[in-house]
Structures are given as C-alpha cells and as structure tokens.
Amino acid sequence: MIEEVIIFGTVQGALLALLALGFSLVYGVGGVLNLAHGAFYLITAYIIFWTIPLFGFTVSAIVGLIAVMGIAAFTSLALIKPLQDTHIGVVLVTFALAFFFEQFVKYFGDPLYHYIAPWVPGFITLLGINLQAQLLALVIGSIALVIVVTLFINKTKIGKSIRAVSQDAEAASLVGINTDLVLMTSLVLSALLVGFAVIFYAPGNYIAPHIGWRYLLLAFSVTIFGGMGSIPGSIVGAFIMGYATTFTDYFPMLGPEYSQLIPIVVILVMLLIRPQGLLGKEEVQ
C-alpha cells in the first residue's frame, strides 16, 4: 500500500500544486480572490479540444496558453482593476466570469462530456505499479514549473516586485513599483500555470462545462490549507492533500467514497488549530 500512496499521492499533489500555486500567488499579491481560476482551466481545455482537429495537440496547446494568458490580462485590466478597492466587487465579477465561461462552452460547444486522448501514450511500471505515462509527465512538468516559478519570483526584477507588492502594496507603490502591472503579471502567471495544468492533465481525462468549479474548489482548499497567499504553503499543502486523498482511497477502513471528505476534515482541523494555514503568516490587526 505504501508504494501506491507514494506514487498516486505524488500525482495528485503535482496537480494540486499547479492549480493552487497561481491562485495563492494572485491572492498574495493583490488580495484578489479569483473565482474564475477554475474557469481558466475550463476555457483552456475547451480551446485545446476545439482546435486539436485543426492544428494537432502541440499547436493547440500553444494557442490555449496564449488565449488563457490574454483572458487573464483582460480580466485583470478590465474587470478586476476597476473594482479592486472593493473585495466583494472582485469576488462577484470573477464569479460572474466563471459562470459566463461555463455557459459559453455549453452554447458554443455542447453540454456533453468529451475525452482528450493523452499525448504521452502507454504506461510505465514504477515500484511494481503501472502508471500512465501522461501522469508521469504531469509530475515532471509540475515539479519543473514550480521550480521555474520559484526562481522567477526570487531572481527576476518583476518577481521581486511581486514579492514587494505582496508584502506591502502601498510601500511598493511609493518606491515606484507599478502595482497594477504587478497584479496583471501575477494573474497572467497564474493563468499560465493553469494552462500547463490543462496541458498535462486534461489529456487522458474528460472535460465538460462544469469542470471549472471542481478545479476552483481544489485550488481553494489547498490554498486555505497551505496558507492564503503563501507560495511554499501551497506547494507543501498540495502534496499533503494529495497523499491524504490517496491514503483515504487505499486505507481498508475508508475507501474512495471518503476521499472527498477526508481533505475537508484536514482543512477544518487546520483552521481550528492554525487559522492562518500551514505556512501562512498571522495577520496583525
């Protein structure tokens, strides 16, 4: 059982890390609770699905990434920025955007389920366990992207600006950092990560108009668990949640029917004993 929990928990954790990292980053920078985060996954998946017959997977994936980054930039400039002063305004407008994309794919596509074939076919055997090669690609891709994003935030000028704004937006503004640009960059980076989550995870999976909500919920859960706005917290939290879910699947007295309940229990316990999350900072009132 240990081998299965390690391997499949790592797969779950890799997916959750990709989803939660961007969500946490945007919250950390601008205090923006982007409820269209899951919808970014949805629209990217559908753009890729619709364009595969025209261009093949590789070009479609690039088109999907460009499109979702464009959508994120538009969302930041046209919808979030004017309402940024009111948190509830941002929540409402991103919530509306998520509904819009759900209906959009339903009307311009259909309400049915569709399957995207894996671009890495076959399976490999690890520790005696058969694992789809596509899921191994997800793990490798996720780890690589997490490293790249961490380096980007720590080593580049714009990355340092992101950190500065997340620590104190007002002070950052006073020293000449364009906070609007930083927020837009964060949202585009977040969308890029979601786009890569689609590229690695949607193939071999089904898509349907409602899937965005599930991925939003996953990102939200991990971010609460890891600490709102904490990037290391999101990464560590993602893998802990991944292992907890898989352990639940395998533990004889539990089983898959509890796999959605156990992570929620973990979050509740975390909120009770450490409300700021695993690696979140306690706010000084």
């Binding site: 997916l15 995870y201 071999g204 395998y250 898959p256």
Partner: peptide
Amino acid sequence: HIAYPITADAAAFATYWQQIDD
C-alpha cells in the same frame, strides 16, 4: 468493491484500477 465519488478524475481512476489488479 470500489464506490467512487462521481467527480473522480483521471488520477483517481488510476488508483482504482491498481487496487482492482492488486
């Protein structure tokens, strides 16, 4: 005997088949 949540996705199904084969 696996009763899975209706929202289970690809990663979850990989674990189910592994359990069945095991």
